[in-house]
Design a protein around this nucleic acid. Structure first.
Length: 425
RNA sequence: GGAGUGGUGGCUGAGUGGUCGAAAGCGACGGUUUGCUAAACCGUUGUAGGCCUUAAAAUCUACCUCGGGUUCGAAUCCCGACCACUCCGCCA
């Protein structure tokens, strides 16, 4: 949620920032300001009347206590009450309209984010390591998976329909090894606190994080209990501190969590769906930080590096993209994508997305902090990054480290998690 | 799932229709005292919004889990939701 005061005081700056990502949203600002002025006018009127009415109460009390007759005052008070009742509906309506209009506006893109859409992403760092040169045609991961029985695609479909897979044997173990490796690295090396989360959230929670807007058609939902299954750990990690005022010294908070993520992938059928590329349920390790506003720029860079460190350790080449304003998610001011190279498919796979949501999510979820015990509460900046999404890492790993004889060399850092296994095959 | 009890400020805990935004204690913050620490003493101590503003102060409104209702007036009465605790049942 954007700050209405900021829109009021610097409407032009807000409009021009918004135009970079969504000209239609920018065009609603003038209407919003008109609504806001109207709302405040009504508020003032009604508050003045309430003050007037409140003045009667002690008088009535005094007369009654003295045993007098308060009929006249009661009549006056009733008259004002009627006036208030007449105005109240209007105020409520203006309030609701303003919140609705404000809720539809996405975050303002950061200054260094370029305008444009999906095709306007900018590569911001060279390749992390040279792409491996193969002296044989590298196979796609689904073939490798079938050869070594790492994933059972057919039976996954049998159990839960298309888009669900069963990891089997070394495949299941490999995934668990990667999860442990990632979590351990974030906890031990990067200083995060590990969190074990519920996998379903109430409507209130997904609304507070803004995900109901962005993910509504994507989320699996249990109608009976009105719970939403995580499309990512992010909404859960935002809601941990919903409605709280964090005490001085609490920031930064650094959380990491492994969760399954469920996405309907509505409308995506047929596109990039082969193998593990796009499945309805996948595992992910998430990084999340609550930081001081002045630290969020640095934090985003750090979190990107923390995700990259994992790929470096696994010897998987990747590149970094700064997304254009029109392509970043609703709550984000800036997003960096990390794409790993998939030699078997010959394309880049998004394995992480790191976003600085500035104060947008914090305002919406009413999360604040104090710098000093007596200071006014302020909104912290919230950031999230995948670190990393499992199926695509598994794909890239298998394809990158496959050998001519069909075996796969296991990268050194995860061998301890696989009982010392050095080669799959 | 059935029965009961209850949800008050950072915490504990008073308050059952009228100057209650809410006693008291603890904590926190500022100060006095002090060689230092502690103790003692004095003071301050919620949030949001409106108005006015360069800003603050002052002032007004709302908030005693949340949402409705009764009343001139609600922390207090009524209804609903959510949550917690106790007992019974069921269960990994």
């Amino acid at each position: 949620m954007l700050d209405i005061k900021r829109i009021r005081t610097e409407p032009d700056a807000v409009k021009s920032a918004l135009t970079k990502r969504d000209p239609e949203a920018a065009a609603t600002i003038d209407d919003l300001l008109t609504m806001d002025a109207d709302r405040r006018k009504r508020l003032t009127e009604i508050e003045t009347l309430k003050a007037e009415q409140n003045r009667f109460n002690p008088q009535i009390a005094a007369i009654k206590k003295a045993g007098g007759d308060a009929t006249e005052l009661l009549a006056q008070s009733a008259q004002i009450k009627a006036q208030i009742a007449g105005l109240e509906g209007g105020v409520r309506e203006s309030d609701a309209m303003q919140i609705a209009a404000l809720s539809k506006l996405p975050n303002l893109p950061a200054d260094d984010v370029q305008a444009g859409g999906e095709s306007d992403a900018v590569e911001i760092a060279g390749l992390s390591r040279p792409l491996r040169e193969f002296d044989f045609p590298p196979k796609p991961h689904w073939e490798i998976c079938e050869t070594h029985r790492l994933v059972d695609f057919e039976r996954g479909t049998k159990l839960s329909g298309s888009g669900f897979v069963i990891y089997t044997g070394v495949g299941a173990r490999l995934q668990r090894a990667l999860i442990s490796f990632m979590l351990d690295t974030h906890v031990s090396t990067h200083g995060y606190t590990e969190i074990g989360l519920p996998y379903a959230l109430t409507r209130e929670s997904v609304t507070a994080s803004g995900h109901i807007v962005k993910f509504a058609p994507e989320m699996y939902h249990d109608a009976e209990s009105d719970l939403f299954f995580l499309p990512t750990a992010e909404p859960a990690l935002v809601n941990i501190h919903r409605g709280e005022i964090l005490p001085p010294g609490a920031l930064p908070l650094k959380y990491t969590a492994h969760t399954p993520c469920w996405r309907r992938e509505a409308g995506a059928a047929g596109k990039d769906t082969r193998g593990l590329q796009r499945i309805h349920q996948f595992d992910k390790v998430e990084l999340f930080r609550y930081v001081l506003p002045e630290d969020s720029e640095t934090a985003l860079a750090e979190m990107t590096n923390e995700a990259c460190a994992l790929l470096d350790a696994l010897e998987i080449p990747y590149r970094l993209l700064r997304l254009a304003a029109g392509d970043i998610s609703f709550a984000a001011a800036k997003t960096i994508d990390i794409e790993a190279w998939s030699p078997g498919m010959g394309k880049w796979l998004e394995v992480s997305s790191a976003s600085n949501c500035t104060d947008f999510q914090a305002r919406r979820a009413d999360i604040r902090f104090r710098r000093e015990a007596t200071a006014k509460p302020e909104f912290p900046h919230l950031l999230n990054a995948s670190g990393l999404a499992l199926p695509r890492v598994v794909s890239a790993l298998l394809e990158t480290h496959q050998n001519a004889d069909g075996t796969v060399t296991v990268p050194a850092p995860i061998r301890p998690y696989l009982g010392g296994l050095a080669v799959i095959g």
